[in-house]
């Protein structure tokens, strides 16, 4: 029963389930706020009971008693395995290479998975001033970076106005050559489909489209000529168990799942 795909689910629930499937059991996950929290909790409740949650505020092995509303929420600390200095999280966990998975989003994402969370327009005369990197740059040095974003033309741009978090820079081995650690982006999960990066060129391509979405729709919402996988298929919907867990236990008040 629990492996049956659900017929009743929202796009957000599908995105959360898809993100959860990217996490393997035992992995160290650097969690943010919103859908990534739900994806991590869902993975923990299903196939990855031994994952370890790390939060930027300085907590390792969080066991939150409620849904955290911000990354510094006190519920992340009560009952956690370890509390540490802010600098140590970055130096001894991210820089040391101990984080397997991180979640990312941004106002602009380009075809090599570089992310802009700093400014739209010119840095010195910005059209829109965004919050900036914070921890985002360093989260981008985990082994696999998962990007979750709304699929819109103004967000999926050929070249970002500002590189806040490095994806594959200008493609091929340019990330590695620049001396940047970590594996780079591994999947981009949007409301329309799941995208990945070509092995050699590191250019983003469409791997799956969600049920009810057409390939043309994804192309129309991407501002460069998006490559499509020759083996493209439909995204697997969430299972009945996943939907039940999300609705009844993980976000029963609909704080993140609207």
């Amino acid at each position: 029963m629990e492996n049956k795909y659900s017929k009743d689910y929202t796009t957000q629930e599908l995105m959360v389930a898809a993100a959860a499937r990217e996490i393997n059991d035992g992995e160290v996950v650097f969690v943010g706020i919103g859908l990534p929290v739900l994806a991590t909790l869902l993975a923990q409740r299903t196939h990855a009971p031994n994952l370890v949650m790390i939060y930027e505020a300085g907590v390792v092995g969080a066991k939150p008693a409620r849904l955290a509303l911000s990354i510094g929420d006190p519920t992340l600390f009560s009952g956690a395995l370890m509390a540490l200095d802010f600098h140590d999280v970055f130096a001894m966990f991210l820089q040391r290479g101990l984080c397997d998975v991180s979640f990312m989003s941004g106002a602009q994402i380009d075809k090599y998975g570089n992310i802009n969370a700093t400014v739209i327009g010119d840095y010195n005369k910005p059209k829109v001033r965004l919050p900036g990197s914070g921890g985002a740059y360093d989260l981008g040095t985990s082994k696999k970076m998962l990007i979750i974003a709304r699929h819109e033309k103004r967000r999926f741009v050929e070249k970002v106005d500002f590189i806040t978090t490095v994806g594959y820079l200008s493609g091929r081995d340019s990330r590695q050559k620049a001396g940047i650690k970590g594996g780079g982006p591994s999947a981009v999960i949007t409301n329309l489909g799941i995208l990945r990066f070509e092995k050699e060129s590191k250019e983003m391509y469409l791997e799956t489209y969600h049920p009810g979405v057409t390939v043309q729709q994804v192309k129309d919402n991407t501002s460069w000529n998006l490559k499509i996988s020759p083996r493209i298929f439909e995204t697997k919907p969430p299972t009945q168990e996943e939907v039940m867990l999300l609705r009844n236990e993980l976000d029963p008040n609909g704080i993140f799942l609207k």
Binding site: Y137, R175, G179
Partner: peptide
């Protein structure tokens, strides 16, 4: 935070792997 760490340790600077490749 690394800037503060350097000062807190009495050093003039510290290295980090942060920022490399970004536009900062």
């Amino acid at each position: 935070t690394t800037r503060l760490k350097a000062a807190s340790m009495g050093l003039p600077f510290l290295p980090t792997r942060s920022i490399i490749g970004s536009d900062l």
